[in-house]
């Protein structure tokens, strides 16, 4: 996706004073990226523990609902941090990110995985049993893990694509 509206938006961002400040201070991007990685760490460990529990690989001594309740905050508190640091990086280098296929793929995968995460929360909101997850949800949880791996990889690939 590289239509002219998107390109114009990139040019506009490049003309802002915030863009100039970020361009002139290397430490801003480096710091934003480091915080971004720390927030990703929070999301990933939460996602991994929840999905391994749904798959029945880890943490079976507790119901799925307990594990979701315990770790979902790691995901939802980190997402705004990711959004803010991500936006600052975009303003600093709009053309490197917005028009980049790796970035666009990353956003698509993010949208899908957020829907899956919400679906899991809804499914186990009132279900505190120790019962196994059904096949559909176990498959979804594999998809969710694969998407998060893809999101991290796509994030790194923004620098190369």
């Amino acid at each position: 996706m590289q239509n002219s509206a998107l390109l114009h938006f990139c040019y506009y961002l490049e003309s802002t004073s915030l863009n100039a400040v970020i361009q002139d201070n290397l430490w801003i991007v480096a710091t934003m990226q480091s915080i971004h990685i720390l927030a990703i760490a929070s999301v990933l460990v939460g996602v991994l523990l929840i999905n391994l529990r749904i798959l029945g690989i880890h943490g079976q001594s507790e119901p799925i609902a307990t594990v979701i309740t315990r770790y979902q905050a790691l995901i939802w508190f980190a997402l705004p941090v990711l959004l803010i640091t991500g936006c600052i990086m975009i303003v600093g280098e709009p053309a490197r990110s917005l028009t980049n296929p790796a970035f666009q793929l990353k956003m698509l995968m993010l949208a899908i995985v957020i829907l899956i995460t919400l679906h899991f929360q809804k499914t186990w909101r009132n279900n505190h049993s120790y019962a196994h997850a059904d096949l559909g949800n176990r498959l979804l949880s594999i998809v969710s893990l694969a998407l998060w791996i893809g999101i991290v990889a796509a994030g790194r690939w923004i620098a190369y694509a």
């Binding site: 760490a41 990933l44 460990v45 991994l48 994030g155 790194r156």
Partner: peptide, 11 residues
């Protein structure tokens, strides 16, 4: 892969 592993270590 390194980033993925490192984030899980620190997380």
């Amino acid at each position: 892969l390194h980033v993925l592993a490192v984030t899980l270590v620190i997380g």
